[in-house]
């Protein structure tokens, strides 16, 4: 199997995740899209490992996975606390980035 195809699949997944981040409004779904992008990166790392015959790519993917787990924990708690104070999970509602 040509790893190039795997990399192209990773690219497609990454772009879909990125577009999802931009067009979805539910913070949770956006977060899932971010996870999708991370996964596509992982896929790319694994395909590199396969293509080059080196396990370093897999190690990196492993670390990404662990970091993603930590990120999800913190991110979800942020979403929960925002939801508590604002009663919404839409990212359009808190436009507090503008004073």
């Amino acid at each position: 199997m040509n790893p190039e195809m795997v990399a192209l699949l990773a690219a497609v997944l990454f772009v879909l995740g990125a577009v999802g981040v931009l067009i979805r409004r539910n913070a949770l779904v956006i977060f899932m899209c971010v996870e999708l992008m991370l996964n596509s990166a992982n896929l790319l790392l694994v395909s590199f490992a396969y293509a080059h015959g080196s396990l370093d790519g897999q190690v990196a993917a492993f670390f990404v996975m662990v970091v993603a787990a930590a990120e999800v924990v913190v991110g979800l708690s942020i979403i929960v606390s925002v939801y508590r104070s604002r009663r919404t999970t839409s990212v359009d509602a808190p436009d507090l980035l503008k004073l």
């Binding site: 990125a18 981040v21 931009l22 067009i23 409004r25 990212v91 359009d92 808190p94 436009d95 507090l96 980035l97 503008k98």
Partner: peptide, 14 residues
């Protein structure tokens, strides 16, 4: 441009 909307900023970044 300074809408304060996260998604607009994200789009601009992207």
């Amino acid at each position: 441009l300074q809408s304060g909307r996260v998604r607009s900023y994200a789009l601009a970044t992207f």
